[in-house]
Amino acid sequence: MLQNDPASIALPPLAIPVRTIGRRTFDFSRQIAVMAIVNRTPDSFYDDCATYELDRAVEAAVQAANDGADWVDIGGVPFAPGPEVPVDEELARVIPVIEALAVESDVVVSVDTFRPEVAAAAIAAGASVINDTTGIHDPRLARVVGDSEATLVITHSLARPRRPYPRPHYHDVGSQVAGFLRDRIDVARANGVPDERIVLDPGHDLNKNTRQTLELTRRFGEITALGYPTLAAVSNKDFVGEALGRPKGERLAGSLAAATVSALLGARIVRMHNVREAVDAMRMVEAVLGWREPVFETHNL
């Protein structure tokens, strides 16, 4: 393996870089994981129901694993404001996908939920990550994770689940997001989730406008300085579209740029819709950082 150049980019150290999550082990001191996205919702912001049907969702999840994704994140309820989805309906959307994917691949299975009942059923079905985009709004969810072997993603967001949060204001977005995450880490610990099973997410676009999200991305190092593996969920989001003036279907280049900037500031998981392109981008970042050998070498040899 290539050795790090002392003059290369300095990244914040991780307190516990080596993590076993599900059936895979990651060394986040020299590895960037790609988390694919599969939404079984009729109202997701990006894919217009493309994976709402069960067979399409399973096919997309398996294809993401085959395309090199390290994780697949399955969601049954969008973050965006909207009508409540009953617990039974959320379970019916996500559990069959988890079960099918666990049979087909050793990829890490993550479930995007804020409900403790769904988290418990998802873990029993084979999920090894609970991705809570509501910042542990319900501490019982942390207790469910604490009583298992699963990892918990703690995300910065301010609104109650599926509720609007108009015109968000921050006097210092970087320090406020970091402070929120510190507080929620304490909640997770108090409910039995150890440090080695905590991942952070500053919540790009979640209760933040475009300028706030761009500043938070510039200051991503303040979040990674907390010492936990940090997730950058930047794919096709509105801050990319508004920064570039691009509609949903034309945000790939901007999303890859945002993911790369986040990785160079310490992100160790990137949540992306376009799996093959994201895998190539992150493997290239690893190669530039000296963490990965070239696949082959013929140029000028």
Rank of each mutant, 00 (worst) to 15 (best):
I98P: 01
T51L: 06
D280R: 15
V118F: 03
V173F: 05
N4D: 15
A188E: 03
T41K: 06
G241K: 03
A10F: 00
V240W: 02
Y46G: 05
Y165Q: 13
A150V: 05
W71Y: 15
L206I: 12
R268G: 01
V111G: 03
E215C: 09
A57L: 06
S8D: 02
N131L: 08
I37R: 03
H273N: 06
K248P: 09
V62T: 15
G76D: 04
A127E: 00
A281F: 02
G266E: 00
E286G: 08
Q176A: 14
T113N: 05
T25H: 11
I123D: 01
V153S: 10
A57Y: 02
G75S: 11
E90Y: 06
G76S: 07
S8A: 12
L244P: 06
G135L: 05
L244Y: 06
A61C: 12
I95V: 13
L301N: 10
E250K: 12
R56I: 03
R251S: 09
F239D: 09
H137K: 12
S128H: 04
A120V: 10
P202H: 08
N39H: 07
A33G: 13
V34E: 04
V288W: 13
A259W: 02
G241V: 08
V240A: 07
R30W: 04
E53H: 15
E277W: 08
D27Y: 10
A102R: 14
G76R: 01
G174I: 05
A122H: 07
T133Q: 13
F28C: 01
R292A: 06
L301C: 10
D138G: 04
G221Y: 01
V62E: 10
K237H: 07
A120K: 14
H137V: 09
I98Q: 05
N131H: 11
H137F: 15
L265H: 13
R197K: 11
I21G: 04
A125R: 04
D73G: 10
P166W: 07
K248I: 14
A61M: 05
R143H: 13
L54H: 06
L216D: 00
A233S: 15
R283S: 10
N66P: 03
V144W: 00
I269Q: 00
R160L: 12
T51D: 08
R167G: 08
D5A: 03
T134K: 12
N207Y: 10
V270G: 00
A259D: 11
A124S: 15
V34F: 02
A267H: 07
I136K: 03
P294W: 08
I154E: 00
S148W: 02
D172Y: 11
A57K: 04
E149P: 01
R19I: 04
R162F: 07
P166D: 09
I185C: 05
P166I: 11
A122K: 06
A64S: 14
A257G: 14
D205H: 09
A159D: 08
S105Y: 10
G227I: 04
A243S: 15
F26V: 05
L141Y: 01
K208S: 07
D172A: 11
D186N: 13
A100G: 09
R40H: 09
A121Y: 01
P12D: 00
G227H: 04
G254C: 05
A33D: 02
R219V: 09
L2Y: 13
R143T: 12
V153M: 10
A64K: 04
A178Q: 03
P6K: 00
I130R: 02
D183G: 13
V145A: 01
A80M: 13
V108L: 08
S8P: 02
V18N: 10
